[in-house]
Design a protein around this nucleic acid. Structure first.
Lengths: 159, 159
DNA sequence: TATATTTGCAACCAAATTAGTTACACTTAT
DNA sequence: ATAAGTGTAACTAATTTGGTTGCAAATATA
């Protein structure tokens, strides 16, 4: 799930940056270092999760579905979880004999590990896409050797 | 990593239960619902992590390397991480053009997501194998319809 | 000492996941 | 009309992972 999450946040940060203007999958793919179709696939997931909306036709592309400070990294995390809902989904362990120990173990693990996942989710919920975009913008000028990348770095750089 | 973690904790809880007596990979596999070789593979990882030790030869098997209340689920989690150290390892994203934006994005994500992983690790560190085994033992009698599974359930049940 | 038990390990197979890619239908601005 | 884009299906290749077999080495026990 690693790269999906990374590319998704990359996309959302980009969309937050170019607020209001639809961005094409080709541009996003170029920035994220992947293929436009991969972006569109991921975009479908983000759209189903209600994080972005897309416009068909020429001049179309993707936009944030709501303000960037109303999208948390937990939203992104959950959107990427479609198939398997839990980080510690222990459901895959087969229920075996021995008095259903497998089932008891499964439930016990789920209960005990729930607190761990809860902690991580709270931490993710505390980070917004707006924060990410802002942090990114503040880091770009210093980190980049491009000429003219000083004050207007945020507008100069095509994320 | 899901099932690896689940099987590993299953194994450790079992070993905590049968304290001092080496347990063979066949018994563990039977309990965890997998193949003895899978258990031995996993056991190698746990052994490298210093969580268990094994005895060769007839009557051999695995034992906890230290007291069960000195083994946290964070230890297990980290042991299962060998190849890829980070839950949010963003390193796989290719560094692309555009003023090394990929690299900046990577570092920014790592920094922001570090807090999330830290929170999860602290929660995992707060749970010991001893707690897991105890919780498991307390749940087994009630959950199981085996005859004779009442007071001495902990000794009756072969985890 | 001989035998049975058990780990350690390598090799291989099958299934699942995933990124990348191509192709094409459909939508929409110009 | 045409060009630009999305949505989606299909295929490939790589990676991961669990299961399985086979065998050498170690060790308790008779």
């Amino acid at each position: 799930m690693n790269t999906r999450f990374a590319v998704a946040t990359h996309i959302l940060a980009f969309l937050a940056h170019s607020a209001g203007q639809p961005v094409s999958s080709e541009v996003l793919a170029g920035s994220a270092g992947t293929h436009p179709v991969v972006v569109r696939r991921l975009m479908g997931t983000l759209r189903n999760a209600g994080l972005v909306r897309t416009q068909l036709g020429a001049g179309g592309g993707a936009l944030l579905a709501r303000a960037s400070d109303c999208i948390s990294l937990l939203d992104v995390y959950e959107a990427m979880q479609e198939p398997e809902p839990d980080l510690f989904a222990v459901g895959s362990t087969k229920p075996n004999a021995h008095c259903n120990l497998g089932r008891v173990m499964q439930h016990t693990l789920e209960d005990l590990l729930g607190s761990a996942e809860q902690a991580m989710r709270q931490a993710l919920a505390a980070i917004s896409v707006a924060q990410l975009a802002q942090e990114l913008a503040s880091r770009l000028p210093a980190d980049c050797g491009c000429p003219g990348a000083t004050a207007d770095a945020a507008t100069h750089h095509s994320l």
